[in-house]
Design a protein around this nucleic acid. Structure first.
Length: 182
DNA sequence: TTGAAGATGATT
DNA sequence: ATCATCTTCAAG
């Protein structure tokens, strides 16, 4: 079952936690389909979050974060890596969840499952580029999110500081990075 | 118009 | 610890 707009129309921290264990489905032009379990997320929430791209004001790059929940926000970092985010919260409130790590659902044949850790690697693996900017998870034919097979409990979640945002003043301290305890 | 700074990853 | 690489944004 595809996650609907209502799933993302909530507090970003809650959505970031809820996304753990959920499945990203990516369908390529040639029909090949990849499914991956989300294992690490990061919340970026509101104008007071100095680590967020939307902390100053709405710009050409971050405007999608102000749009309605369930949209895809893609941006280029360090001139070479794309990062995949899902927009959260009501229209007008800038917020999104960054997908930092996934675990590929392998064919039945091969036993092991491969973990892709790092937002740049996630996009490389799922072949996400700028063309996904503004894609709607509720209706897209090439990317969406689904309920996962596993149920993640509160005790299974580790909260940490967010990665790569040491410039962000007091919001550096906020434990808005979430991953599944192994 | 310009330049400084990144929500990173690979390598030394 | 350093570098590759280039868009974005705010300052001038």
């Amino acid at each position: 079952m595809r996650l609907k707009k209502s799933f993302f129309d909530k507090n970003t921290i809650a959505v970031a936690k809820n996304l753990l264990g959920k499945k990203i489905v990516r369908v390529f032009d040639n029909g090949v389909r990849i499914e991956a379990i989300i294992t690490e997320t990061e919340a970026y929430h509101g104008l007071n979050d100095r680590a967020s791209h939307a902390s100053r004001k709405k710009t050409e790059r971050n405007k999608i974060m102000f749009d309605h929940p369930g949209l895809v926000y893609v941006y280029l970092v360090y001139g070479m890596h794309y990062c995949l985010n899902f927009v959260t919260m009501r229209e007008g409130f800038p917020a999104a969840v960054l997908v930092r790590a996934i675990k590929l659902e392998q064919e039945i044949r091969s036993a092991k499952s491969e973990t892709i850790s790092g937002p740049g690697k996630v996009c490389r693996e799922l072949k996400i580029d700028k063309s996904f900017y503004g894609e709607n998870l509720a209706t897209s034919k090439r990317i969406w999110a689904e309920e996962g097979r596993i149920k993640i409990k509160k005790n299974d979640i580790i909260a940490s500081r967010r990665v790569g945002v040491n410039y962000a003043g007091e919001s550096v301290e906020w434990l808005w990075n979430f991953k599944i305890k192994i």
